[in-house]
C-alpha cells in the first residue's frame, strides 16, 4: 500500500448547513489527526448526525471547506467513499439476509473476489463473535448482535476512516463495552475514528480529542482532561443530622454552599485525600458529627452543563 496521504484524516473549516430557516451547522471548524479517535459530543438535535452525513457524502454542505482523506466529499465523493466506513445510528444491515450473507454482500460490493470475500467474512464473524449466528437472518438478532454485525460490515472494505454515529445508543451496558473494545482495537490498528455520542462517559473512555457541539456550533474542544479543567466544579458534599451541626460546620470551615432544607454543605475541593483529611480534622476538632459525606470530582457532565448553560441537575444524577 502506498503511504497514506499526510495531513489530517478529516479537516473542516467554516462548515455550514441549514434546512430552510433552521440552521443545523453554523460555522464548524475541526481537524482529526490520523489514527486517533475524535468524539463529537452533543445532545439530540445538536447537529451531530448532519455532520456525519456531510462527511460521509450523504448530504451536501451549504458552505465551508471539507476534506476527508484528502478529498472533497462534494466534488469527489467516490474517492471519499473508498476511504471510509460508516455505521449509522440506525442499523444498516439487511435483516432479510443472514449475518454471513450480509458480510458477503459487502465483500461483493467491495469487489473482493469469491475466495477472499469468504475468508474475510469468516474472519469478521469470528472476531465479532457471530460465528454461531452466522446462518440466521439478521432480523432475529438482538440489538447488540445487530450492532456488531453492522460494525463488521463496515470493516469488510478495510476503511482508513470510520464514522460511528451514536454506535451504542440503545445498547445494554455489556454490549456497549464490547463496542468500546472493538473501537480500541481498530484504533490500535491505525484506523481513524470519528465518533458521535450523547454519552459523556463514552467520549471520556474512547476519545483522544472531544468537541462539544451545541446548536450547530462547537462550544469547546480538547482532550477530556483539558475540558474538565474548564470547570473547577469539584466539591465535597456533607450532610448533617440537624441545623445546628450544619451551622457549626460552616463556621468551622469558613466557606461553602449551604442548603438548609437538605441539611447539606458543599465545600469546594479538588477531591484529593490531603484536602479531605484537612477538612475532616477541622470538623473533628470541634466534635461535629457528619451524617454522610460524598466527594464529587468534575466530569464531562459538569463541563457540558456549564458550557451549554442548561440547568445543573447533577444532584439528581450524582
Amino acid at each position: 500500500m502506498p503511504n497514506p496521504p499526510s495531513g489530517p484524516a478529516i479537516s473542516v473549516t467554516g462548515l455550514r448547513k441549514s434546512y430552510g430557516d433552521k440552521v443545523v451547522l453554523d460555522g464548524v471548524d475541526l481537524r482529526v489527526a490520523e489514527g486517533t479517535v475524535f468524539s463529537l459530543l452533543g445532545p439530540n438535535g445538536a447537529g451531530k448526525t448532519t455532520m456525519v452525513q456531510i462527511l460521509s457524502t450523504l448530504i451536501r454542505a451549504d458552505g465551508g471547506r471539507v476534506r476527508v482523506a484528502g478529498h472533497d466529499p462534494a466534488r469527489d465523493p467516490d474517492a471519499v467513499r473508498a476511504a471510509i466506513g460508516v455505521t449509522g445510528q440506525y442499523s444498516a444491515v439487511d435483516r432479510f439476509l443472514t449475518g454471513e450473507e450480509n458480510l458477503i454482500l459487502m465483500a461483493d460490493l467491495h469487489h473482493l473476489g469469491r475466495a477472499q470475500g469468504r475468508r474475510r467474512t469468516a474472519e469478521l464473524l469470528e472476531r465479532f463473535d457471530l460465528t454461531e449466528a452466522a446462518s440466521k437472518p439478521a432480523a432475529t438478532y438482538s440489538g447488540g448482535m445487530r450492532r456488531r454485525l453492522d460494525l463488521a460490515m463496515t470493516l469488510v472494505g478495510d476503511p482508513r476512516i470510520i464514522f460511528l454515529d451514536e454506535p451504542t445508543t440503545g445498547l445494554d451496558p455489556r454490549s456497549r463495552r464490547t463496542v468500546w473494545r472493538i473501537v480500541r482495537d481498530l484504533v490500535a490498528g491505525g484506523v481513524t475514528v470519528f465518533l458521535t455520542t450523547q454519552y459523556l462517559e463514552e467520549a471520556d473512555e474512547l476519545a483522544d480529542r472531544i468537541a462539544l457541539l451545541d446548536h450547530g456550533r462547537l462550544i469547546a474542544e480538547g482532550t477530556a482532561d483539558e475540558l474538565k479543567r474548564l470547570v473547577p466544579g469539584g466539591h465535597i458534599r456533607l450532610r448533617f443530622a440537624d441545623a445546628g451541626g450544619l451551622e457549626s460546620a460552616l463556621r468551622a470551615l469558613g466557606e461553602g454552599y449551604l442548603d438548609e432544607d437538605a441539611l447539606t454543605l458543599q465545600v469546594p475541593s479538588d477531591g484529593s485525600v490531603r484536602s479531605l483529611r484537612g477538612l475532616l480534622t477541622r470538623l473533628d476538632d470541634r466534635s461535629i458529627e457528619i451524617d454522610e459525606l460524598s466527594v464529587h470530582t468534575p466530569d464531562l457532565d459538569d463541563v457540558f452543563l456549564a458550557l451549554t448553560g442548561r440547568p445543573d441537575d447533577k444532584e439528581s444524577v450524582r
Binding site: 460521509s56 457524502t57 450523504l58 467516490d78 474517492a79 467513499r81 473508498a82 471510509i84 466506513g85 460508516v86 449509522g88 440506525y90 442499523s91 444498516a92 444491515v93 439487511d94 435483516r95 460490493l109 467491495h110 453492522d150 460490515m153 463496515t154 472494505g157
Partner: peptide
C-alpha cells in the same frame, strides 16, 4: 426505510 440503503450510499459502488 432500512439503514442498509444509507450504507450503500456511502460506499464506492
Amino acid at each position: 426505510t432500512e439503514g442498509i440503503v444509507a450504507r450503500f450510499r456511502t460506499m464506492a459502488i
